[in-house]
């Protein structure tokens, strides 16, 4: 019963599919949940909009509220011009949210607890920002590091800070999501294993005392549900803010 709290993050091979160069490509537990997330998101929206009704049903409401929520976030942070990135932002938000929520189901794998995944998503966002920013604004994109209205003698310092803050964006974006999911799930596992430990160590009395970590576990589960949503939202809103920089550089 006293399972290693780290074991839940182990990537397990299901089938080895082949090799690309020296790298082994396998269908893993992580891959299964990513595929499931795509199926749930796309299938869910398609099912919700199949019998389009004027008065939305429960599922259509969920889909529409999510749509309006993401669209509102994009519009308020990146303006109407930012709406061209709406499919990307919507994909990121729903992908992270659904995978985080999958992670809350006991026994399910938490895909976003891996730095490779969050790092790749952060890289996608930052590369989109840089490529679109250069494509749309050309050299003016570098005004991002040259804020207006700053006295000239502090400018070198400001430019260094701006460049450092820009470079730290992919790092903070990926590590925030990864670390939050990882830490939350380790905590859950630790408190859950306390119950088992107490029960095996103290017998019936252990079951009684075990109510304490059990209550803690319930509270933490509620907190983790919030964190699962919040981290998806934070990733989304930061993506929008960075895209706003690409659309309107020079503050």
């Amino acid at each position: 019963m006293a399972a290693d709290p780290i074991a839940q993050f182990q990537i397990k091979k299901i089938v080895t599919l082949g090799h690309i160069g020296p790298y082994e490509i396998a269908l893993t537990n992580s891959a299964v949940f990513m595929i499931a997330a795509v199926v749930v998101i796309v299938g869910g929206i398609l099912a919700a909009t199949r019998g389009q009704t004027l008065i939305p049903g429960r599922f259509q409401s969920i889909a529409e509220i999510t749509y309006e929520f993401v669209a509102g976030t994009v519009r308020s942070t990146a303006g109407n011009e930012g709406m061209k990135f709406f499919p990307l932002v919507f994909s990121l938000f729903t992908f992270i949210l659904v995978l985080n929520m999958f992670g809350m189901i006991p026994g399910f794998f938490t895909v976003m607890s891996h730095i490779a995944i969050t790092g790749a998503l952060a890289a996608l966002v930052i590369l989109t920002v840089i490529i679109y920013g250069l494509y749309k604004n050309g050299f003016k994109f570098f005004k991002l590091f040259w804020p207006s209205g700053v006295p000239l003698f502090v400018m070198p310092l400001i430019v260094v800070i701006e460049i450092l803050s820009f470079l730290s964006r992919p790092l903070s974006l990926s590590v925030r999501l990864f670390a939050n999911m990882l830490a939350g799930h380790i905590t859950l596992k630790v408190f859950a294993s306390f119950i088992g430990l107490l029960a095996t160590a103290l017998g019936v009395a252990g079951w009684a005392v075990g109510i304490l970590p059990f209550g803690m576990l319930i509270a933490l589960t509620a907190l983790e549900l919030l964190v699962a949503f919040l981290q998806a939202y934070v990733f989304t809103i930061l993506t929008c803010l960075y895209l706003n920089d690409a659309i309107h550089p020079g503050h």
Binding site: L27, T28, A31, I41, I45, S91, A116, A120, L124
Partner: peptide
């Protein structure tokens, strides 16, 4: 990492294409 990234690319590209071409316009 290679497996994770491989599946991430496939899944995310599929998600993006399906959402932007089919699901989001319907919604």
């Amino acid at each position: 990492f290679p497996s994770q990234l491989f599946w991430l690319v496939i899944c995310f590209v599929a998600l993006y294409v399906l959402l932007s071409r089919v699901a989001l316009p319907r919604l």
